[in-house]
């Protein structure tokens, strides 16, 4: 049993999805926690301090490479699995099983993931790319990210797209969180209720926290 055989088997591919998924969930905690500093209402001083630590310190920057690697692996493996799974039924049903047997978002992980990917392209080009290019992609001087958020979220369409992006993420997490743990083999009765409630709780909190950021700026709740 070579490692290649393990990670190219159907169970192994799911393991990759689960492990990278949990890694990205941990990233979301850090990202949401740091961004929540905008609500300190101190004209972004606390937020910019945190952002500066993440952008100008060598350790978070090395971890950032790992983050992109994990993200890419999750995206590529996810898309390949989706295409492969779809090819396993050449002739479809005339009447579909629909929501009777499973939740719509559990069947739509590929579409939700693609929506998140499209959102990420916009999101990275709004904040990450201008900041890193200002730093010449090394540890140079950063832009004022708080000001950048303020100006970006003055446009209503941007706020709407961000909120929709957060909703896609929320539904992706609502299934992904518990599914990742099941893939890792944890679904004993004693953990089932705990992981399911934790998963729904996490999805709701993360969605609300991220969605409220552009809304707060747009409605002038922070200064």
């Amino acid at each position: 049993m070579t490692w290649k055989q393990v990670f190219t088997s159907s169970v192994g591919k799911k393991l990759t999805m689960g492990l990278t998924g949990i890694f990205l969930i941990l990233f979301l905690v850090v990202h949401a926690g740091l961004n929540a500093c905008i609500w300190a209402n101190d004209h972004g001083i606390m937020f910019n301090k945190g952002a500066h630590f993440m952008g100008a310190n060598v350790i978070p920057r090395i971890l950032e490479i790992g983050l992109f690697a994990g993200l890419l692996l999750h995206i590529i493996q996810g898309l390949m699995l989706e295409l492969s799974n779809r090819s396993k039924r050449k002739v479809g049903y005339a009447v579909s099983y629909g929501n009777e047997g499973s939740k719509w978002y559990s069947r739509s992980m590929g579409i939700l993931g693609t929506l998140i990917l499209l959102f990420l392209v916009l999101h990275l080009s709004d904040f990450w790319y201008p900041n890193r290019s200002h730093q010449n992609f090394v540890l140079g001087e950063e832009i004022d990210l708080y000001e950048k958020m303020k100006t970006t979220f003055t446009e209503l369409w941007v706020v709407i797209v961000y909120v929709l992006g957060c909703l896609s993420l929320g539904y992706h997490l609502a299934h992904g969180f518990q599914s990742a743990f099941k893939t890792l083999g944890i679904n004993n009765r004693r953990y089932h209720i705990m992981l399911t409630s934790l998963g729904y709780g996490f999805s709701i909190i993360i969605t609300l926290a991220f969605a409220l950021m552009p809304i707060s700026f747009y409605l002038g709740w922070v200064n």
Partner: peptide, 15 residues
């Protein structure tokens, strides 16, 4: 045999 991979939707258990 050409079966797909599991995505834990739960449709199997329900049926």
């Amino acid at each position: 045999e050409g079966f797909g991979a599991c995505t834990n939707t739960g449709a199997c258990e329900a049926t």
